[in-house]
């Protein structure tokens, strides 16, 4: 993916020099290992700050909501699907965007790598297949596939689905991926088992709302948790309120979530809240044959009625 960076800078410079766009949305090198920061590049000279590697996990579509300028945006598979969703939901217009597709090899899980390290990590570099972690008195080489972010490990849409140009050739989409093993395991639990599972899952939540705010789908001007009249959810750390937040937020993402993993990546306390959205994603796929963000033309399942919609849950 190293070659990506050069290409990305070149494209950004070209777009800005030609005034094709006013801004380019990409990543710059972060201040700590395995952390890149989203940035808005405004001049051709600043394009030299752009980078691309396995630490570009933030979903850039999150930064497009209700913007009015003409924007160039670098988009992985998941970013591109959220751009599609944004366009369908009228949060941005297609004409405003120059989408530069970035075929993705998967982003790495910095929390997991840090937990696997034998000390403080000072530097992380990568080559085609390996992630090389160096720290105080140790060096570790991980195979990229072993340290992918959980959602990237089961991703079946690595290539952008919508783009004006590409940074590199399309990558091969993984064929035999079992996307929903974890969801099936939870489905198999008893009601009581499920209750306990989610109790434990959410035990550490501090309601910082990083999951919500990192999510490109969560753009409501006032989130339901912030409403005071009526107040739908208590604001304390009461477990029922914490659960209500996660569970209702997930439902708001039904048929829209692309499993980009932004929520999990942002979570400061390591909650695997994707199990909520993945269940809904699975239901959408199995019951409606729907995967979010693949097409500008098709209407989302919760947005359209079809006579053959499944209704066996209704008596």
């Amino acid at each position: 993916m190293r070659a990506y960076t050069e290409k990305i800078r070149e494209i950004a410079r070209r777009l800005l020099e030609a005034c094709t766009v006013e801004r380019v949305l990409g990543f710059r090198r972060g201040s700590v290992p395995m952390m890149n920061a989203p940035c808005f590049v405004k001049t051709p000279a600043e394009a030299a700050n752009l980078v691309w590697d396995s630490n570009c996990g933030i979903n850039l579509a999150n930064y497009l909501t209700s913007r009015s300028e003409k924007i160039g945006i670098f988009a992985k598979g998941c970013d591109s699907r959220n751009i599609v969703t944004h366009i369908i939901e009228n949060k941005i217009r297609r004409e405003q965007l120059v989408i530069i597709g970035v075929p993705c090899h998967g982003m790495i899980d910095r929390h997991r790598i840090a937990a696997m390290a034998d000390g403080e990590i000072r530097e992380v570099v990568e080559d085609e297949n390996n992630i090389i972690v160096q720290g105080d008195g140790f060096k570790k080489v991980h195979n990229r596939h072993d340290v992918l972010q959980a959602n990237c490990a089961v991703c079946t849409h690595r290539n952008p689905v919508i783009y004006d140009e590409l940074v590199a050739d399309l990558v091969e989409e993984p064929g035999d991926v079992d996307r929903y093993r974890d969801v099936r395991e939870i489905e198999a639990l008893s009601a009581e088992g499920k209750w306990d599972f989610f109790d434990d899952l959410l035990h550490d939540c501090i309601r910082c709302y990083a999951c919500r705010n990192a999510c490109p789908l969560c753009y409501c001007p006032t989130c339901f948790v912030d409403e005071s009249r009526p107040q739908w959810v208590g604001k304390s750390q009461d477990p029922v309120d914490v659960r209500t937040f996660h569970f209702l937020r997930a439902y708001h993402c039904a048929g829209r979530c692309t499993d980009c993993g932004a929520c999990e990546r942002a979570c400061p306390v390591g909650i695997n809240m994707r199990v909520f959205t993945k269940k809904l994603e699975k239901d959408c796929l199995e019951k409606f044959g729907w995967e979010a963000g693949l097409s500008l033309e098709a209407r989302p399942p919760l947005d359209a009625y079809r006579p053959d919609d499944p209704d066996d849950f209704i008596r």
Partner: peptide, 25 residues
């Protein structure tokens, strides 16, 4: 989520189906 089966039920009842409403309730 852990809500016991049976606590959440869906029905489709027309405003004309008073009997069905009673039965479902």
């Amino acid at each position: 989520m852990g809500i016991e089966p049976g606590r959440l039920q869906f029905s489709w009842i027309s405003s004309a189906e008073a009997t069905k409403f009673v039965e479902v309730a």
